[in-house]
Design a binder for these strands. Structure first.
Length: 502
RNA sequence: GCGCCGCUAGCUCAACUGGCAGAGCAGCGGACUCUUAAUCCGCGGGUUGUAGGUUCAAGUCCUACGCGGCGCACCA
């Protein structure tokens, strides 16, 4: 640690009352010879075990089963000689603990009332019973503090402020069922994707996060410095160029699920670090790709909801079943603007069409950029059902193979769900000479001040010169997929999104 | 980056045109052997995001800054 020494502060100074009280309880436990944070406590069953073993008991039943459980106290009802507490396990499973004067004795009952706060982890040993009201309970004959909580928990029944949810996700996860649900769904979805790839014979590879050139996408990178090499390096904006090197090397079918970093705006649909799935398959193309992407998302949806017709966590119903719609860029735009737009449409016309609907063109725009803007404005936001938008302009897609029958168009699709881009796929450009021309054109844009333009990656071009087979590739946003499955903000799908320090 | 809105007790929120800063839950003390957003009685808890300014008087008005939300721009 190289921080400046901080003046020691008295921890009792300036501490909210409730924290002070809990610290005093902790100290009292220590003073009486009780460890408030024991290394281990007896536990024979999880709360889930006990629930599963006794699914439907009649009220006022004594089972004779003695168990030792542990959980977080989330609710207490202390009466004179019989105390109740609700214990919660990490997945939200709850069970009631009952402590009676008869069973635990006067001293331990008094200890319970004075030492245990909401939020504490406690271990309880006793018989599994149901209360007279039918609540499944452990009737304690002994109990022990498992971990003392020093901060008061928020009120469970009022929603936490969004900022607190994000900054203190650990609290959010304890308090809010949907937070737990989203966290677990994300794991389920990623596991399902990996299973789908395993089934199809894909290799999961790990390519560099620290790169000496940033490529594979148009985006502004984060820059850092590698001391050992005295070298500026970039956090990757995409794994694409390395995954293609894998294809050149004969790995045939590869995928990677990992983080990308883009030094750009953050809002409800964009995070500076976000999880991306990319996969490449030799002798595939953008049509085969689209089919497989649909299958991947459908398999992940089945894993998450058990059905392709599902109700999102925000309450909206969605249907991902069957074949998905396909539309084509130029015909869709033509229909929307009322005149035929083709790759040869003059820039002046495109500019007028943009300005007519309030889109402000920039001087760096290539013709295809106008078309994409028109597409976004007129078409995309109306695409609720999953839809593949096919055949993009060539000049905005420097890594994509030209369409054999449509000059100025490339074999590329974007997949839209609920008006947001979920992924992209294309028939990869494998001609090293054409690829070099495209990258040089990009580097000219960069020299002209476009901070997002690509660099000429000579090693990548060398790889292509060794021969890359016809290949189809896809990039799919993992956070976006979770957003589309849940209907939630990107910050709700990421456990710990970047926030400014308090 | 620009614009608008917000920041009050541990949590969620009140406080009119500037006039004694409050509630519910949580906390503390007491009562209660079947409660489950327990109930009943009593009591504490605040540098109103930070720093300035106006005013007899500022949570409230003004300025700057911090953090957040929304919209726009950029992007997936």
């Amino acid at each position: 640690m190289t921080d400046h020494p901080v003046a020691p502060t008295d921890p009792e100074d300036d501490v909210p009352e409730q924290i002070r009280v809990r610290r005093e309880k902790r100290q009292r436990l220590l003073d009486s010879g009780t460890d408030p944070y024991p290394v281990r406590v007896p536990r024979t069953h999880t709360i889930q075990d006990v629930r599963a073993a006794h699914p439907d008991l009649e009220p006022d039943t004594a089972t004779g089963d003695v168990v030792a459980i542990a959980g977080r106290v989330i609710f207490v009802r202390n009466t004179g000689k019989l105390c109740f507490a609700t214990l919660r396990a990490g997945d939200g499973t709850e069970i009631q603990a009952m402590l009676s004067l008869d069973k635990v004795g006067e001293t331990r009952l008094a200890d319970w009332k004075s030492d245990v706060d909401l939020g504490d982890h406690v271990a309880v040993r006793g018989e599994v019973i149901t209360s007279r009201r039918g609540e499944l309970s452990v009737l304690a004959d002994s109990w022990q503090m498992a971990a003392k909580t020093l901060r008061p928990f928020p009120v469970e029944h009022k929603p936490l402020a969004e900022e607190t949810r994000v900054r203190q996700r650990y609290v959010d996860l304890v308090v809010r069922p949907q937070a737990r649900e989203v966290a677990r769904m994300r794991v389920t979805v990623v596991a399902a994707l990996r299973a789908s790839f395993a089934q199809r014979g894909f290799l999961e590879v790990e390519t560099p996060m620290l790169q000496t050139m940033h490529g594979g996408a148009t985006a502004r990178p984060f820059v850092t410095h590698a001391n050992a090499f005295d070298l500026d390096v970039y956090l990757r904006i995409a794994p694409e160029l390395f995954l293609k090197r894998c294809i050149v090397g004969g790995l045939e079918r590869v995928f990677e699920i990992n983080r990308n970093f883009r030094n750009e705006g953050a809002d409800s649909t964009h995070s500076p670090e976000f999880a991306m799935l990319e996969y490449y398959e030799e002798y595939s193309d953008y049509r085969k790709n689209a089919r497989m992407t649909r299958e991947l998302i459908q398999e992940a949806t089945l894993a998450a909801y058990g059905s392709l017709q599902f109700t999102r966590l925000d309450g909206a119903a969605r249907d991902f079943s069957g074949e998905w719609d396909e539309i084509s860029v130029y015909p869709s735009v033509s229909q929307a603007v009322g005149i035929e737009v083709i790759p040869e449409t003059p820039v002046e016309t495109l500019r007028e069409l943009c300005e007519a609907v309030g889109i402000k063109p920039e001087t760096t725009w290539v013709p295809g950029k106008y078309v994409e803007e028109l597409l976004e404005h007129h078409v995309v936001e109306h695409l609720t059902r999953p839809t593949f938008v096919m055949d993009y302009p060539e000049d905005t897609s420097p890594l994509v193979r030209a369409h054999p029958d449509m000059p100025g168009v490339v074999e590329k699709w974007d997949l839209y769900i609920d008006g947001t881009e979920q992924g992209t796929g294309y028939s990869e450009l494998v001609d090293p000479v054409v690829q070099r021309e495209r990258l040089v054109a990009q580097s000219m844009l960069k020299a002209g001040g476009d901070v997002e333009a690509m660099q000429v990656d000579e090693d990548f071009l060398r790889a292509l010169e060794f021969g890359m087979p016809p290949t189809g590739g896809v990039g799919l946003g993992i956070d976006r997929l979770l957003m589309n499955l849940t209907g939630l903000n990107i910050r709700e799908t990421i456990l710990f999104p970047l926030v400014k320090p308090e």
